[in-house]
Amino acid sequence: MKAVLGELLQGRPVFVNIGVRAFGDTLRQAGFEVVQVDWAPPAGGDPRLAALLDELL
């Protein structure tokens, strides 16, 4: 079995931060590349539509 995380632990990881910006900010200050997602609840928080999107998007 291929060891999980192998490449990640030995390389220079690139992060996507979804949610609280401070998590990304500290990584960026430490010199890591971070893509921040401007997150909002999917489908305006409607669970029925969110479930449809899970299937379709």
Binding site: E7, L8, G11, P13, V14, F15, V16, N17, I18, G19, V20, F23, G24, L27, E33, V35, Q36, V37, D38, W39, A40, P41, P42, A50
Partner: peptide
């Protein structure tokens, strides 16, 4: 900033997602 992970990954390939959105999502 991109509004979704999918959009984010279109601009930059990444290795790990840090997720801190409300639990329900």
């Amino acid at each position: 900033d991109p509004r979704s992970l999918e959009e984010a990954l279109r601009t930059r390939a990444a290795d790990l997602a840090v997720i801190s959105v409300p639990g329900a999502h």
